[in-house]
Amino acid sequence: MHITLRIWRQTNPAGPGRLVTYELSDVTEDMSLLEVLDLLNLQLARNGEEPIAFDSDCREGICGSCGLQINGRPHGPLKGVASCQIHMRTFKENDTITIEPFRAKAFPVVKDLVIDRTAFDRIIQAGGFISVNTGGAPDANAIPIPKNTVDAAFEAAACISCGACVAACKNASAMLFVAAKVAHLGRLPQGEVERKERCLSMVAQMDAEKFGACSNTYACEAECPKEISVDNIAFLNRELLRAKVF
């Protein structure tokens, strides 16, 4: 199939960048979008041009490194998938596909489609962990946990930290990401001990990184490749109130 790509090119963090148009005609519909970028890069390299920089690793929707704004939406038009899981059969012959990096003050562009997401790492470092002595693996059923608690925690744990929530939010808010981490660990007995500290430290770091506040548009939930619910955001709000007020 024939495809027109409009891709954000930016040589360095200082910018400025711009959309550059590329025409590709040897695309098949079972190629993934990232494979199309690979194909384009091969052609660019052959012509002595600078290939397009973009992030990817697992290419099966589990590592979270491939965040792209595809046709005006984080991870493209499909629900519950990451950018690497978008295949060309999603598009039609002669379609134009616009690809931009996720945009937020806290996610500066490094080059082309590559952004710096270390703000998320710093939020995790602030409290997204459980302090335990690592020894042998504990017995699987040593601590009984109610089924719905486990399910809720597991749903939150599915977060792959890709940043689509930030990218989708009109305020570039990281609430869904932080909420997923706080809800994942805070719901389980192992995380209970540091519950209050964790919430306060992670929220403080989130604000320090200059992510926006939550306007409850729920765009994050709609775009999350793991379909993490905004119920977790209510949980985070409740945690903060609990830590500060009650």
Binding site: W8, L19, Q69, N71, G72, R73, P77, T98, E100, R103, A104, K105, A106, A168, K170, N171, A172, S173, K210, F211, G212, A213, S215, T217, Y218, A219, A222, E223
Partner: peptide, 19 residues
Amino acid sequence: FNRRARPLDYVENRPSENS
């Protein structure tokens, strides 16, 4: 505060599809 969180906006953005 929120406006400062995204200084450079998308060229193409379709918020009506998610909110």
